[in-house]
Design a protein around this nucleic acid. Structure first.
Lengths: 205, 205
DNA sequence: ACACTTAATGAACGCGGCGTACACATATTA
DNA sequence: TAATATGTGTACGCCGCGTTCATTAAGTGT
């Protein structure tokens, strides 16, 4: 089993260790500082600034994270747990559609969308960040959708020869695309529009 | 009319000017150096390295470009002119599908795909780069597809209530997504798979 | 009590790229 | 020949990076 909630620095849940225990409040201040800085677009994300904003020592950050982006990833993961809980009621189509709406929700909200841009930027320059981003952010979310798709294919609601990964790409990558590259409007309506385009390709002939 | 072939530094096509004329060969060496460096993944793209690689003076680069990424964009535009020429023969569906295949072609080839990643990374950190990337790279390509979609909607081959921009997103952004973020295979087959998913949403009921 | 272990701080260092400024050489037009 | 614009080379200060070190703090073990 994979721990999706922390990139590198697991404070060892209930493990009683020797030495001085890590200060949870400090960690929280650091994560919040990173999220705040990343929300203010145009600000370069660096250990220097984060430490200053959090009122922490720079060395402390270096101890726990390898890069500012991995730090930010930890912050984002904790702030978006809810999006991984999904209803298992209703048709597969309705559940999948709800996931698309959720994704638009998260990526269009400034306090999550903007940090996600900084995260993606890191993923493009640092392979380690890219790996962590895939492992801890993208994959868990794709798996939720993959599960729903699989259910629908079994019950016959969807066609059985679907390429699940490609369907997920078609449904979700446009949302990332609008957030990251283009400047086209990204709002609730886009989820509907997108769904209307892809949905016909899901149902059996 | 918009000049899509140069971001900032137009050498004024046939304009006879005073002073010493710009050296075209030097410009070419610089563009090539940038493309080569961007192809070697893991290398940070900076004026310093580009100048060194091109055997040019760093000052010269600062004169003509505002950022290494805008320089690289110029290089990419010149190397992918062909992709903007498209056949106007055949059904709209066939022509649109061909565009998807071309896109996969360009983004999966290392000598264009990797530089494009560097370009996208720049677009995520520098708003000016982002603007140039949209204006000179994304928009012209989207317009080709938009034209085909428009044709198909007029002839009745496609449904008339399509949101063209959203269709384009659904068809092309998954390709960028696979190049930039995920590590899923990006090959000829993906174009076909993608098309099979989206195509049903295009034809009239 | 004491030793031991880990966390957090703060100061300092060298490195490298960035952006700019300046002086100079070169090529072309008026 | 004068004027103009391109290209070169050097030098400078700045800032963030990544690391090292010494020090203090907060918990464990016997």
């Amino acid at each position: 089993m994979l721990d999706t909630m922390s990139t590198s620095s697991a404070p060892a849940p209930g493990a009683r260790t020797r030495g001085r225990p890590r200060d949870p409040a400090l960690r929280e201040r650091i994560l919040e500082a990173a999220a705040n800085l990343a929300m203010a677009s145009g600000v370069e994300l660096g250990f220097e600034r984060i430490a200053q904003e959090a009122g922490a020592s720079r060395t402390t950050l270096y101890r726990w994270w390898d890069s500012p982006q991995e730090l930010l990833l930890d912050a984002m993961l904790e702030r978006t747990r809810w999006s991984l809980d999904h209803d298992s009621e209703g048709t597969a189509a309705a559940r999948l559609r709800a996931q698309v709406v959720d994704a638009v929700e998260i990526l269009s909200a400034p306090d999550t969308g903007r940090p996600l841009r900084a995260l993606a930027a890191g993923a493009l320059t640092n392979e380690k960040v890219r790996t962590a981003f895939i492992e801890h952010w993208l994959s868990p979310r794709r798996e939720v959708a993959a599960r729903i798709l699989s259910d629908g294919m079994i019950t016959g609601e969807f066609r059985q020869d679907l390429d699940a990964e490609a369907v997920i790409d078609a449904l979700f990558s446009p949302i990332y695309h609008r957030l990251l590259l283009t400047r086209m409007p990204l709002g609730r309506g886009f989820a509907d529009t997108l769904w209307r385009i892809v949905e016909p390709g899901l149902s059996p002939a």
